[in-house]
Nucleic acid binder design. Structure first.
Lengths: 165, 165
DNA sequence: CCTTTATAGTTACATATGCAACCAATTGCA
DNA sequence: TGCAATTGGTTGCATATGTAACTATAAAGG
């Protein structure tokens, strides 16, 4: 009959991770929960996924990008972008034409309907972000931004490229 | 060369999101990149996924948990845990028996092989974490921990507990 | 020109994940 | 007891995502 629930006796020899203090784990929980909370605001209403929304957000700022450029700006891979675009074009939210001087490239932009949706979702997303940041003091917010900049410069692992794969 | 991509003319009227400064987006990139970097260290070598590793990490600290308790401690849902356990038991890394007084519950723990793997992977994971944190000053590290605590207390959206236990 | 190599984007397949329905053991309570 | 409600866990199905292979243009070099 072994002891009940305490940290396993093996602890001393094995030095297990404390997941709840482990940075990657905490970031993952935090990130998922926040993104999910925002997504809930629009996913059902507009039948759109997070990746699709990100593509729209980029196209709202940069008119006429190609799919590859969208991939760069969203840090998504090109397959994900391709699929998101297929759905968005199908739904009439994004327009796609072919580049004049390079028939491989597409030229992308939001349609009227795309803009209409964007103009409803963007403020909701910003509101959620404010809600989260409201839990912090001014000082903490300043540090957070600084720290994120630091962690992400040259890619989060410092190895160079981001999102290894 | 065509003019460098400017914010679309529509910007003024539509106030698009600046994804690269949007907290949820940045967290998501950072989190994925770090987790992926760590996962690369062990995924191929041991044929194990991030969720499986998390289950093992919890079982390394708490011997004899049930599947539901593992789910609580990892913030994964019970289906994910069930599937991770199926693979881990199959691979001989986790032992599963039935609770004496409640035949629904399983009683889980690492096997010899499980411990052996754990003892190789845990130090690598910790090393990666240190690598990331090394980009910050002592002061920044302190703030980061504080800020994460703050953002995650009562669940990241402030709506309800998400990492109980 | 013709061949080689690179680039934009799509498709196919295999795996992962989320949700709902489900089975079985347990508990609550009339 | 006996039956409804609850809980631990698994399974099925529908989606999502990553990797590699593929098509089509384009660029580079003989």
């Amino acid at each position: 009959m072994t002891a009940k629930r305490q940290p396993a006796p093996a602890t001393a020899e094995h030095a297990p991770l404390q997941l709840e203090h482990f940075l990657p784990y905490r970031l993952s929980i935090l990130s998922n929960t926040i993104s999910q909370a925002i997504a809930n605001d629009y996913q059902r209403r507009y039948d759109i996924s997070v990746t699709e929304w990100r593509v729209m957000a980029v196209l709202a700022r940069f008119e006429g990008l190609s799919a590859r450029e969208v991939a760069e700006r969203t840090a998504m891979d090109k397959v994900a972008v391709s699929r998101a675009l297929a759905r968005l074009v199908e739904a009439g939210r994004v327009s796609r034409s072919i580049h004049d001087n390079d028939k491989r490239r597409s030229v992308l932009g939001l349609t009227e309907a795309g803009w209409a949706m964007h103009d409803e979702v963007a403020p909701m997303a910003r509101a959620r972000e404010r809600e989260v940041l409201a839990r912090l003091s001014d000082e903490e917010r300043t540090w957070l931004m600084l720290i994120l900049d630091r962690l992400m410069e040259n890619g989060p692992t410092g190895k160079g490229g981001s999102v290894p794969g």
